[in-house]
């Protein structure tokens, strides 16, 4: 059969990629404490157990605050940067954009350690705020990538037309540009929210005494009896991530369709 080998390869690749994620809900709904086959029976008790842990809720609260702040700040920064990079020419633009995008390729552990050194050097106490700063740093490249695509698909003459019809720069931005890039903004918010929510290394280094959800999960692995609870939690997180990313992609595509542009990639 033609392409048979390739098909097998693709199948193996998908199994390798997604099998662990499928195991997650499998054991989350399993009766037994031990994470091993055979499964012993269906139960939702681990979900109940997870919901009854106050420290877990604290971590969830921290994570949500961090993710919400980081996504709003990095998206706001992304709007300015994307607008500047698609619309204006200034000396050193390539270099500046390269520097902003750098955290995308820099090992996260290096970002985390350097941030820690700088913050300690400045005498700033570690808290949620410092984690937010770190997450803004790593989310901004993503928001810029998404928003640049949104701003680029915007026909420049739309702006000029609004201006020509008597609007000012500000009202043109509000009436024309913002509505047209709004799908991109929503998509950027959702993706940076997701990135921040399950980021571990930076949060681990910068959180101080206020653990985020990933840090909480990591710490729980020391207790074997807590593992099924973590499985349940993981299942919930995977479900949330899928919903968030799917809606991000939905908004990105709707934005393209609305402005009549061609699809030139994206994150999904």
């Amino acid at each position: 059969m033609k392409g048979g080998g390739f098909r097998i390869y693709a199948l193996a690749y998908l199994i390798f990629l997604y099998a662990p994620i499928i195991l997650l809900p499998l054991f989350a709904f399993n009766e037994g404490t031990v994470i091993a086959f055979p499964l012993t029976g269906f139960s939702t008790k681990w979900f109940v157990a997870a919901a009854n842990q106050p420290t877990l809720w604290l971590a969830v609260k921290n994570s949500l605050i961090i993710a919400a702040s980081a996504s709003v700040i990095s998206t706001a920064l992304g709007v300015f940067a994307a607008r500047a990079s698609t619309r204006y020419h200034f000396p050193g633009k390539g270099g500046v954009m390269g520097l902003i995008m750098l955290p995308l390729v820099l090992p996260e552990i290096i970002v985390a350690v350097s941030l820690l050194v700088v913050l300690l050097g400045l005498g700033i106490n570690l808290s949620i705020v410092t984690v937010i700063l770190g997450h803004v740093l790593i989310c901004t490249p993503f928001t810029i990538a998404i928003l640049t695509s949104a701003f680029q698909s915007l026909d420049r003459s739309l702006e000029e037309a609004a201006y020509d019809l008597g609007e000012t720069g500000i009202s043109t931005f509000r009436l024309i540009i913002l509505p047209l890039v709004m799908p991109g903004i929503i998509s950027s918010l959702l993706i940076s929210f997701t990135i921040s929510l399950d980021e571990f290394i930076i949060a681990f280094f910068l959180a101080g005494t206020q653990p985020t959800l990933p840090i909480y999960i990591f710490s729980q692995f020391r207790f074997p009896q807590a593992v099924p609870v973590i499985m349940a939690l993981g299942t919930v997180l995977v479900a949330c991530s899928i919903v968030l990313l799917a809606s991000a992609e939905y908004f990105r595509r709707r934005g393209l369709a609305r402005s009549g542009a061609k699809d030139t990639g994206g994150f999904l």
Binding site: S157, E160, A162, I176, L180, G260
Partner: peptide, 9 residues
């Protein structure tokens, strides 16, 4: 405008 620049939204 050459592209008409109709506001698509």
């Amino acid at each position: 405008f050459q592209s008409y620049a109709i506001f698509p939204h």
